[in-house]
Design a protein around this nucleic acid. Structure first.
Lengths: 175, 175
DNA sequence: CAGATATCGTTCGCATACGAACGATCTTCG
DNA sequence: CGAAGATCGTTCGTATGCGAACGATATCTG
């Protein structure tokens, strides 16, 4: 299904982020070592942060493919969390979905513009803004659940059962 | 060293992205199941994409701590890659550092504003913009190498030797 | 050589992502 | 009650991150 993994589909080369294959004739500065160490033992391609960023990029592409473009991963996260826990203050919602107060504000704003969420002030605490799924938001959530599963599945596709479990456990530990 | 992991240091609560502990009295909509499945078997907190995003957030915090605020992960990636491969076209540099053409442009621009990189036109191919480390950029790279190592180390700290190796291998596979 | 095609860098628009500062409101404690 | 401290939402500035469109240039093909 995701056979060629969406990269370099044929004779032409799309403008996307992808590793240049091989070491296209580039001389690695600082020669002399036989080891696969590039410089000073620090190789960017082996650093967790760099790999994490790329893994997330890959996931973002697959996610967009599965969802056909509308609904970003963060927007979906908000919908899914609201479906899980029901009405919730914007602040708490941000913590549940791992978003900064400024970030969650923008995401909710865009979802509200599409009438997928409802916003109302908490009568008991006038500081709080309570967010919940609208009827349309709930139906969108239900309709897109299959896409979300496909996105996760597609991302983990290159891994076996055991590797998937270990990866998820490690990521949860790092979190 | 990073004992409390920078979260909720004491009596006050900083404004940061963090999981709310426990399930603070929230009723999970859709009850009846004993299983740890929240709704329809889809639990946001178990999805790769969500975990990847949070792992990267965590890394970003640790990276910023190790680097004292200046130099973002992407900026460091550019410096490190340039140190590895030497002068390079902006486009290729972007591919090596997994950045979009528009993104690498901004990063290089900011590094250039700080005189850490040099830019010159390729005389043989007037489309290309060749990027390289300036003298100052190289010394910054050398000086910060220890910080970069600490950032990677701090991120992987909660994992054992075997887990680290597996995680890195899995991430590379997903990439 | 000339047209088709590909590549490179730039720009624009949009969507995260977060720190910092701010005012409004709630809670706590004297 | 009243001041101090904490929390909530908003706004601003900065930095990624990517798609799309554009013009300039290089390469390929007939």
């Amino acid at each position: 299904m995701f056979g060629n993994r969406g990269r370099d589909a044929g004779g032409y080369r799309r403008r996307r982020v992808g590793r240049p294959e091989g070491n296209g004739g580039l001389k690695t500065a600082g020669d002399g070592d036989e080891e696969p160490v590039g410089r000073d033992g620090y190789v960017l391609d082996e650093q967790v942060g760099f790999l994490l960023r790329q893994a997330q990029q890959r996931h973002a592409v697959l996610f967009a493919e599965c969802f056909g473009g509308d609904l970003t991963p963060t927007q979906w996260a908000v919908l899914a969390k609201l479906a899980e826990i029901g009405e919730c203050s914007q602040n708490l919602l941000g913590r549940y979905t791992a978003m900064d107060v400024a970030t969650i504000k923008g995401v909710v704003q865009r979802l509200d513009a599409r009438h997928l969420v409802l916003r109302r002030h908490d009568p008991d605490d006038r500081r709080q803004l309570l967010i919940s799924l609208s009827a349309e938001g709930r139906s969108v959530y239900t309709a897109r659940l299959a896409d979300a599963r496909r996105a996760s599945e597609a991302t983990l596709a290159p891994l076996g059962e055991r590797e998937r479990a270990i990866l998820l456990r490690c990521l949860r530990t790092l979190r």
